[in-house]
């Protein structure tokens, strides 16, 4: 059994604006299934950039990326979109929600797109995820009516809805207080241990990082 879920091989990326600049300088690493990984490093070292590559959204890089034994490098945008929908849950540094929808609908949308379950099942699951994150009574509110921390938790609930193989977070607890950070950490911990889901989270929180299975540190676009 191959228990490597994600493999990055010599990832190199340049930015061309305002001038040519190498952000990622050949990053290679593997992540095992069910592993809870923390990505740390100084601000500006390229963590977010790497996460966009790993999440398959950014296709403008050199090297190769394999998730779940699927080589994703050079696949078309539409194939990648379908792959993301099913296999990757992403929590952005800034909570990107759809402002015209309720918290519940925001959580449901990726599952309605995937169509693995019926609408009723999806709704039930979305409620459960929101409840887990302490948002049950906010479910029907428009997300614009929620506080920053609440919105961040809605984004986390959304990332979990399709039971993705890999959950990626770019400072997912950045806007949360200690209590909520603890909740999110516990959820991630449980997902990794009990459901064998893989977590890769960028964090500045030392306590958060310390309790992970493994810590990867980046410096100036390289692993240390």
């Amino acid at each position: 059994m191959n228990d490597i879920i994600l493999k990055a091989d010599n990832i190199i990326k340049y930015f061309y604006e305002p001038e040519k600049f190498q952000v990622l300088k050949g990053i290679s690493f593997e992540v095992k299934k069910g592993e809870f990984l923390a990505l740390v490093g100084k601000s500006g070292c390229g963590k977010s950039t790497l996460m966009y590559v790993l999440s398959t959204m950014d296709t403008d890089y050199e090297g190769s990326l394999t998730i779940k034994d699927t080589v994703l490098t050079k696949q078309s945008q539409n194939e990648l979109a379908a792959f993301r929908n099913e296999n990757i849950g992403f929590v952005f540094q800034f909570h990107y929600l759809l402002p015209e929808f309720s918290a519940l609908e925001n959580v449901m949308i990726p599952a309605l797109k995937l169509k693995r379950y019926s609408r009723a099942e999806i709704e039930e699951k979305a409620y459960k995820n929101l409840e887990m994150l302490g948002l049950k009574d906010q479910a029907l509110k428009r997300v614009t009516k929620l506080s920053g921390g609440q919105q961040q938790r809605v984004a986390i609930a959304r990332a979990l809805i399709n039971d993705p193989a890999v959950i990626m977070g770019d400072e997912p607890t950045g806007n949360l207080d200690t209590a909520n950070t603890q909740i999110v950490f516990d959820i991630f911990r449980e997902l990794a241990r009990e459901r064998n889901q893989t977590i890769i989270a960028v964090t500045h929180d030392d306590d958060f990082a310390k309790n992970c299975d493994r810590i990867i540190e980046m410096k100036d676009g390289q692993m240390v």
Partner: peptide
């Protein structure tokens, strides 16, 4: 931005 979010969540161009 919302279009970008939809695509990030796995909606295709079509």
């Amino acid at each position: 931005r919302e279009i970008a979010i939809l695509k990030a969540m796995g909606f295709s161009g079509s």
